[in-house]
Amino acid sequence: MMIPACPLADLPRGEAFRLEIDPPVTVFHTEGGELFAIDDTCTHQDASLADGWVEACWVECPLHASKFNLKTGEVDAPPAKLPVRTHEVVVEDGMVYVKLSTAAPNLPHCVARKLVRISA
């Protein structure tokens, strides 16, 4: 599924755009000019990675400093243990789209429980 995120012009390098879907997804435009999309929620605790800090192709969670690789979703060190999902980013006619992964998300305990409740 392709979801429109924002015009590329509205997402300068070094900025992130949080897509308010459930679970939320964030598109990062790195200082190096690359675009990546990953699940916005840290897999350890409910924190928004869009509020985190990007260095090279890693984003550091603003709460407990686990870093996630923007390309692969892998996590560098605890407290987070599971990777985040990565999503494909497509730019068409100056518009940024996210092609959602079909894998199951690795959400922190409380967020995952809430999703189950909603879908039930």
Binding site: Q45, D46, A47, C110
Partner: peptide, 9 residues
């Protein structure tokens, strides 16, 4: 305030 647990909620 830039981050807090559950802040986006």
């Amino acid at each position: 305030l830039v981050a807090a647990p559950n802040l986006t909620k």
